[in-house]
């Protein structure tokens, strides 16, 4: 049913040509004011970020009155020991979490998509996606409770806790594209490899893994962005000296607004946007 209507939709005139019929159809589908709302939404989504970015280049203490273009706040940010330290902490955590989450998620995706359905598959999928369902603040305080308990019992401290927590909530994000990619890949190619005398391990290394690579890359990038952006969980469980960039920014905002915050924020937004653009590009390549 859905397929038939989809096919029919493609054949209706407004889908393609610039015929008079299309112009008539377009009128039919237009709802008064809808376009205005849509444009307003897009503008509203981007305006604050644009203002933030613009004023990061302002040669002035103010974040509202434009005077002159300048790199001074970026220079200040780069010179700031605390910001450099926070950036380094963020990168370390994101790198470890990305690696751990991507490997674990890829393995889990292989287990849940390859081979026959098994009992407990739904449960396994539910557990993998658990971090997406629980409100972040709940995860944050729950993890804090566990970690403080462990810290008290073992006396072990350090950045490892943050890395582990980040790995956990990055897993479902890394899992999504890998699983989607695996579900798109037919088993036939792997069977063809086995048919041509490739052992299971060589089949995996020479066929499955290269074909899966774009999905894994996409998963890794999502995990990296998600880890880099996390505030609440990190805020709750970070020990002294484990300040990440977002936590630094939050603290700085609480102390008072400065263009330096804009500069750091712009860098962080830039990294995320670049990664997401890259991700979309990879996914487009994947579909080709």
């Amino acid at each position: 049913m859905a397929e038939i209507s989809a096919a029919a939709r493609d054949r209706t005139p407004m889908a393609g040509t610039r015929s008079p019929a299309r112009r008539r159809m377009r009128d039919l589908r237009a709802m008064p004011g809808f376009s205005a709302v849509a444009w307003a939404c897009i503008v509203a989504l981007y305006l604050p970020i644009v203002v933030l970015v613009v004023f990061s280049f302002n040669d002035n203490r103010s974040v509202v009155r434009w005077t002159e273009f300048s790199w001074r706040w970026y220079e200040a940010a780069f010179a700031n020991e605390a910001i450099r330290g926070a950036a380094w902490t963020s990168l370390k955590i994101a790198a470890v979490a990305t690696l751990g989450a991507t490997v674990a998620a890829t393995m889990a995706a292989l287990a849940t998509t390859r081979g026959p359905r098994f009992r407990g598959r739904a449960l396994a999928l539910g557990i993998v996606n658990q971090p997406l369902v629980i409100p972040e603040i709940v995860t944050a305080i729950a993890t804090l409770s566990l970690f403080s308990l462990i810290k008290r019992l073992t006396g072990v401290n350090g950045i490892g806790y943050l890395m582990l927590a980040h790995t956990a909530f990055c897993i479902p994000f890394a899992f999504m594209p890998v699983r989607a990619r695996l579900e798109d890949m037919t088993l036939t190619l792997e069977q063809a490899a086995a048919d041509l005398y490739a052992t299971p391990w060589r089949t995996f290394r020479l066929v499955t893994l290269p074909l899966l690579a774009p999905g894994i890359l996409a998963g890794a990038m999502l995990a990296f962005v998600v880890s880099l952006d996390d505030v609440i969980i990190t805020l709750m469980i970070a020990g002294p000296g484990e300040t990440t960039l977002p936590i630094y920014i939050l603290g700085a905002i609480r102390r008072g607004i400065t263009p330096e915050i804009n500069a750091v924020s712009t860098i962080l937004v830039g990294v995320s946007v670049l990664l997401v653009l890259l991700l979309f590009w990879v996914q487009r390549q994947m579909r080709k």
């Binding site: 287990a111 971090p131 790995t167 956990a168």
Partner: peptide
């Protein structure tokens, strides 16, 4: 081998996502 593949992801999430809820 399926269990081995699932183990890391499930272990991490059970330890850091589910167990803490029990503690809570």
């Amino acid at each position: 081998s399926r269990a081995a593949l699932l183990a890391p992801a499930l272990a991490i999430i059970l330890a850091v996502g589910v167990l803490p809820l029990g503690i809570t």
